[in-house]
């Protein structure tokens, strides 16, 4: 029997690629804007959100989205002041993980839920959630395209952009919310602790090769899709968790870029 005859494999490949595309495109801006810390924080906040929702009997996805979006708003509001407080913010994030563990312990039912939020469960995605994820990714890309131009200007030259009337503050808020959505969609597939690999990995590798914006984004998307597909196939043919393979491939691509790009790029 062909692997594509299995519904869960179809779902895994489609969702894996969809979340990889959204993560790579938003991630390209994250890397250029030096907001990887925000990506890390939003992902960590998603965990207690999902765990808390399970505890009170809601859908973990509702909690995941609510906490990720609230985290994005908080980061945007704190803005510049975040840099001076990275130690205290780090402590808050650790607390968030701890509280998430507590919520799951209080719920007591299954450790499986915690495991899949933290590390993802690509092969356990049903058809409804597959379509929801793909729809969310398309919506995400559409909104990002609508603000792409002023966002790029504000990303590369914030002060000059502001002086031409670009609403830099509002764009930062909008972008962080879109980032929260991209992360929240990806967490059920790859996990809160590992989503960073898809958001930062492909764009961080792509930026070392590409001098042009479009080239960089396209390369990041291709890398993300190769890593997601490769992860699912490796889990099928070799074994071990999909998330492990995706993170491993992301790391390998980044490492290869760090070593090779400076020698090969003119």
């Amino acid at each position: 029997m062909n692997l594509l005859d299995y519904g869960f494999m179809q779902n895994a490949l489609l969702v894996g690629n969809a979340v990889a595309v959204a993560a790579a495109v938003t991630g390209w801006f994250v890397v250029q804007r030096r907001q990887s810390f925000a990506a890390h924080a939003i992902a960590n906040l998603g965990f207690p959100g999902a765990a808390g929702a399970i505890l009170v009997g809601l859908s973990p996805y509702a909690g995941l989205f609510a906490f990720a979006l609230a985290g994005a708003v908080a980061i945007a509001l704190l803005g510049e002041r975040l840099h001076e407080r990275d130690v205290s913010v780090g402590m808050v994030l650790v607390l968030a993980l701890g509280v998430g563990v507590l919520f799951l312990n209080l719920y007591m039912a299954n450790a499986n839920a915690a495991f899949s939020i933290l590390f993802g469960n690509m092969l356990g995605i049903d058809r409804t959630r597959m379509w929801l994820s793909i729809g969310a990714v398309l919506g995400e890309l559409g909104l990002l395209a609508a603000i792409a131009r002023p966002l790029l200007f504000a990303t590369l030259s914030p002060e000059a952009a502001q002086a031409r009337g670009v609403p830099v503050w509002a764009l930062n808020m909008a972008f962080l919310l879109l980032l929260a959505v991209a992360i929240a969609i990806a967490i059920p597939a790859i996990g809160a602790l590992l989503v960073f690999a898809l958001v930062i990995g492909p764009p961080a590798a792509a930026r070392l090769w590409a001098g042009r914006v479009v080239t960089g984004i396209v390369l990041a998307v291709v890398l993300g899709m190769v890593e997601a597909t490769g992860g699912v196939l490796a889990a099928w043919f070799i074994g071990y968790p999909t998330s492990f393979w995706i993170v491993g491939l992301a790391f390998a691509a980044y490492l290869a870029s760090v070593v090779l790009a400076p020698r090969l790029r003119r």
Binding site: Q32, R34, A148, L152, E159, R164, G211, R212
Partner: peptide, 28 residues
């Protein structure tokens, strides 16, 4: 203060291109 992107991996051309009518919405 020069923006951080001025010392990044993008090309100078991409840096300049980002500003061309950069206040407009959509994709260029």
């Amino acid at each position: 203060q020069a923006p951080a992107a001025l010392e990044g991996t993008l090309s100078g051309r991409a840096f300049v291109a980002a500003a061309w009518r950069g206040q407009r919405w959509g994709v260029a």
